[in-house]
Amino acid sequence: MFERITEETFDEIFPLLEAAFPVTELRIREDQRNLLQEEYYRLYGVRKDGVFAAVFATWEIEDFLYIEHFAVKEEFRNGGYGGSLLDTLLKEKGRPMVLEVEVPEDAMTRRRVGFYERHGLVYNDYPYLQPPMRKGQGMLPLRFMTKPSAIDNKTYERYKKQIYKYVYKFEEE
């Protein structure tokens, strides 16, 4: 079901990422492609009717799974497809999970948080700043959602430190 993306299939999947994420939440094409060489990074595509219908970008860091990107092609949304893929991925990986979401301040961001909550993730209100994904960008205020449960401050700090180190190559001052 989950097809590991390689150099050969990367150009097929990247447009799905570009269509689903704003530039503040996505690396430039070559930087994203270069991640395929990273030890902890996995990029997966899911095909439906022969085309990529969904994408997961994950980092398997220590004892947890960090989902950097998850997107479903627009024509396959709102029918339960994305939720079933997310549930399957989490079951297959069998480890605690973390992802970043926007602070739920409008209908769309509240809806996104609600989607993840329906799939067992918990919103954690620790003030988290995502390091820039492209040169010239600032820190982006986001929050963690985690599964199977909420996390304490010590776990939050550990997850943040590891994500900064491996995913963003960022050191706090």
Rank of each mutant, 00 (worst) to 15 (best):
162 Q>L: 15
159 Y>L: 09
67 I>N: 01
98 V>A: 02
107 A>I: 13
117 E>T: 15
97 M>D: 00
76 F>L: 03
52 F>I: 14
56 F>W: 07
153 N>I: 15
163 I>N: 00
41 Y>R: 08
3 E>D: 07
159 Y>P: 11
2 F>Q: 06
90 L>V: 09
119 H>G: 07
86 L>H: 00
106 D>K: 08
82 G>F: 03
28 I>E: 12
46 V>P: 03
104 P>F: 03
143 R>D: 01
40 Y>D: 12
94 G>K: 12
164 Y>A: 02
122 V>F: 15
38 E>K: 14
77 R>N: 06
26 L>K: 04
107 A>H: 12
171 E>P: 01
79 G>F: 08
31 D>Q: 14
55 V>S: 12
77 R>E: 01
9 T>Q: 04
9 T>H: 04
96 P>E: 01
165 K>C: 03
91 K>W: 08
133 M>P: 02
28 I>A: 07
131 P>W: 00
141 P>Y: 00
173 E>G: 13
90 L>K: 04
123 Y>G: 04
16 L>S: 04
85 L>G: 00
7 E>N: 09
14 F>V: 08
136 G>A: 07
84 S>Y: 05
123 Y>R: 13
160 K>M: 07
148 P>H: 07
105 E>V: 14
30 E>R: 15
41 Y>A: 15
14 F>Y: 15
133 M>W: 03
125 D>W: 06
8 E>T: 14
154 K>P: 04
27 R>P: 04
109 T>D: 01
94 G>D: 11
152 D>N: 15
17 L>M: 14
40 Y>M: 04
53 A>I: 05
32 Q>F: 14
23 V>C: 02
145 M>Q: 05
83 G>K: 05
100 E>L: 03
4 R>D: 03
90 L>N: 01
73 K>C: 02
25 E>W: 10
150 A>D: 08
62 E>Y: 15
40 Y>F: 13
132 P>K: 00
84 S>M: 11
8 E>I: 07
136 G>H: 07
80 G>A: 08
128 Y>M: 00
165 K>L: 10
141 P>H: 07
51 V>Q: 11
2 F>E: 01
108 M>N: 09
50 G>D: 06
83 G>L: 09
151 I>D: 06
146 T>H: 07
57 A>W: 01
8 E>W: 05
109 T>L: 00
70 F>M: 13
3 E>M: 11
66 Y>I: 03
61 I>F: 06
24 T>E: 14
36 L>R: 09
171 E>G: 05
148 P>V: 10
86 L>K: 00
77 R>M: 05
46 V>G: 06
7 E>I: 13
140 L>I: 13
91 K>H: 10
10 F>W: 13
136 G>L: 05
100 E>C: 09
105 E>R: 15
61 I>Q: 03
75 E>G: 04
126 Y>P: 09
22 P>D: 07
147 K>L: 12
32 Q>P: 13
74 E>A: 15
168 Y>E: 02
18 E>H: 11
